[in-house]
């Protein structure tokens, strides 16, 4: 492989990282908020798929993709709120409920999404940021979707709010010690319910990106488990919204290796490289699970790290 091919691959990976990372970012931010409050929602995959379907359908009927994004968020919010409500019942296991919501959300999406596989809906426009480079490949890679920036702004805002506001303090306290939250007169169930619902909203928006921008159509194989990988990504990012951005970019780049190599004619091992994000996630989990740092930064009430 000569140097120009390497450049092509790197540019394709950069473009892939920017394109593919957005849904990861939204789901991971939603999951971070939920986990910060001390609960885990494994069902965000369902929110993602249902959000993708709803966004596409609404965009098709109204002609406004941004309305679709909003509707996807609301669909995710409803699923998240249901999850939050059910998990506050005694003896109910939040991990199992997550699996149930994953299958419920995807089931609903496939059921109502059947008529939308064929028609094409208006998609989100991207912002061309790379025209000044004069390099068509780079310009292509720097076609950035506005949702990418929304995600970054959101991550910064969330990091700031968690650290500096009263609400952030309440969420963190609920996540670290339910007993002290109760002692302060905070309703643990209410905080977790709101955090799970808000997390569901963000995951739904991540789904809208899948159907309205990249890959940019609705079908049943749209999500390849991004919603679940985002849960692992949150552990990798150690429950820090800013680190979630970089983790999402890394995952996006890993996912882009296969198609990038194929574009320079290396199709050998395409399916193997497709597995790269999963293998990366697994290794990250193994590495972070055994390091003491991760455990120290984990919310104390989280069932998954106990």
């Amino acid at each position: 492989m000569d140097s120009s091919a390497i450049v092509t691959v790197l540019i394709a990976m950069l473009g892939g990282a920017i394109r593919v990372s957005t849904p990861f970012m939204f789901v991971a931010l939603g999951e971070t908020l939920t986990e910060k409050s001390g609960r885990i929602n494994l069902g965000l995959e369902g929110n993602l798929v249902l959000g993708a379907m709803v966004a596409y359908a609404i965009s098709f009927h109204t002609g406004s993709p941004w309305l679709g994004v909003l509707a996807a968020g609301v669909a995710g919010l409803i699923l998240g709120a249901l999850h939050g409500y059910i998990c506050k019942l005694p003896k109910v296991n939040d991990i199992a409920v997550g699996i149930a919501f994953m299958s419920f959300g995807t089931g609903l999406a496939f059921f109502f999404g059947k008529p939308y596989i064929q028609p094409s809906a208006p998609r989100l426009e991207s912002i061309p940021l790379g025209n000044w480079t004069g390099n068509p490949a780079l310009a292509q890679a720097l076609q950035v979707n506005p949702l990418f920036f929304v995600g970054i702004v959101l991550a910064v805002a969330m990091a700031w709010a968690l650290r500096n506001t009263r609400w952030g303090l309440i969420v963190r306290m609920t996540g670290d010690s339910a007993a002290s939250a109760k002692a302060m007169g905070v309703s643990v169930d209410l905080v977790r319910f709101l955090a799970t619902a808000a997390g569901g909203f963000l995951a739904g928006i991540g789904g809208a990106f899948l159907s309205l921008y990249y890959p940019g159509s609705w079908n049943q194989g749209l999500s390849s488990g991004q919603g679940l990988m985002a849960v692992a990504l949150v552990i990798f990012a150690r429950w820090n919204p800013i680190r979630c951005i970089f983790a999402a970019l890394l995952f996006g780049a890993a996912g882009a290796i296969g198609p990038a190599l194929q574009s320079v004619g290396i199709s050998q091992g395409y399916y193997f490289f497709n597995a790269a994000p999963y293998i990366l996630t697994l290794f990250i989990l193994i590495a972070s699970a055994s390091s003491k740092g991760a455990a120290r930064e984990a919310p104390g009430e989280l069932s998954i790290t106990k």
Partner: peptide, 15 residues
């Protein structure tokens, strides 16, 4: 290794 089995088994599924 203390890796959560739910997530690791799911990732292993995709692999």
């Amino acid at each position: 290794r203390g890796v959560n089995e739910t997530i690791s088994s799911l990732l292993l599924s995709y692999i």
